[in-house]
Computed example of a mutant assay.
Amino acid sequence: MKPARIIILAIAVLAAGLAGLLAMRLTGNDQVIVQQAESVIKKEPTVDVLVSAENLPVGSRLNEKSMRWMAWPEGDLVDGFITSSTRPQALDELKGVVVRLPMFEGEPVRMEKIADSSDRIMSALLPAGKRAVATEISVATGAGGFILPNDRVDVIMVRRGDGSNYLTETVLTNVRVLAIDQQIQQKEDGSKSVVGTTATLELTPDQTKVITVAQQMADRLSLALRSVADAQEADTSAADYLLSGDTGSPSIQIIKSGEVVKSTDEKAPSR
Rank of each mutant, 00 (worst) to 15 (best):
I11K: 01
I11E: 02
L14P: 07
A16H: 04
L18E: 04
G20Y: 10
A23M: 07
M24C: 09
R25P: 01
V32S: 11
S39P: 04
P45K: 15
S52I: 06
A53L: 08
L56C: 08
R61E: 03
K65Y: 11
S66A: 14
M67I: 07
E74H: 01
R87E: 12
Q89S: 12
Q89G: 10
Q89V: 12
L91T: 11
E93I: 06
V97S: 11
V99G: 06
L101R: 14
M103C: 07
K113P: 04
I114M: 02
R120A: 15
M122V: 15
L125R: 07
P127Q: 14
G129E: 04
A132Y: 05
T135E: 12
A140K: 15
G142L: 00
L148F: 13
P149S: 05
D151T: 05
V153W: 02
R159Y: 04
G161W: 03
N165M: 10
L167R: 10
T173E: 10
A179C: 11
I180K: 07
I180W: 03
I180L: 09
D181R: 01
Q185F: 13
K192Q: 12
G196C: 02
T208C: 08
K209S: 11
I211N: 00
I211E: 01
M217G: 02
A218M: 07
L221S: 06
L221D: 03
L223R: 11
S227D: 10
D230E: 12
L243H: 09
S244P: 02
S251Y: 05
Q253V: 13
I254L: 09
G258Q: 08
E259V: 12
V261I: 15
S263Y: 01
E266L: 11
P269W: 05
